[in-house]
């Protein structure tokens, strides 16, 4: 009996350590990057139109806009149009909020988390026009680039992408 109890305690301990949300050391489903890690995503030189959207799970207008970006990502995948969702949640909520949110909303567009507290430096690098509110979106193809500090409807996104 004693051995059984010890065995059960061991099983429980192993189970607890597995479910504590420790991340695998390999590649994360959603990479966490600082600005230098994000920069390559903002400067790809090919024929794809990139839509880079800055958002967070706590930002209501962002969450309202997200299904439109997801839809665009799915419907224009041969566009060639690529949607990148740059998440600005606090990193401590990576497991408890971000991952469940992406699952719940069935997000298939690429997501990365930007964890860089030196906002005064990187906001201006993304766009000097950006005041710092979200949602905000950079649309670029090659050297053509436009910045928007607002939320879009699906129709507006289609119009911008079609005319870009």
């Amino acid at each position: 009996m004693k051995r059984f109890v010890i065995y059960m305690l061991l099983v429980a301990a192993v189970a607890a350590s597995c479910t504590r949300g420790e991340r695998p050391t390999g590649e994360l489903a959603v990479p966490i990057v600082d600005y230098s890690g994000l920069e390559p995503y903002l400067n790809k030189s090919n024929d794809t139109t990139y839509i880079v959207n800055f958002w967070a799970t706590w930002c209501t207008p962002c969450v309202e806009e997200l299904p439109y970006l997801e839809k665009l990502s799915r419907e224009y995948s041969n566009g060639p149009v690529k949607v990148l969702l740059v998440n600005l949640d606090f990193p401590k909520y990576y497991d408890s909020r971000l991952l469940p949110f992406l699952k719940e909303h069935d997000i298939t567009a690429q997501v990365i988390m930007l964890d860089d507290s030196d906002t005064n430096t990187w906001i201006n690098k993304i766009s000097p026009e950006w005041q710092g509110s979200i949602p905000a979106t950079v649309i670029y193809r090659g050297t053509k680039r436009q910045f928007f500090e607002r939320a879009f409807t699906y129709e507006e996104l289609v119009e911008i992408v079609e005319e870009f």
Binding site: W58, C59, T60, P61, L88, T119, N120, I123, N124, W130, Q131, G132, S133, I134, P135
Partner: peptide, 10 residues
């Protein structure tokens, strides 16, 4: 002048 991320005014 400095910049930070914030919540848009509703």
């Amino acid at each position: 002048n400095t910049k930070a991320i914030g919540c848009s005014i509703k």
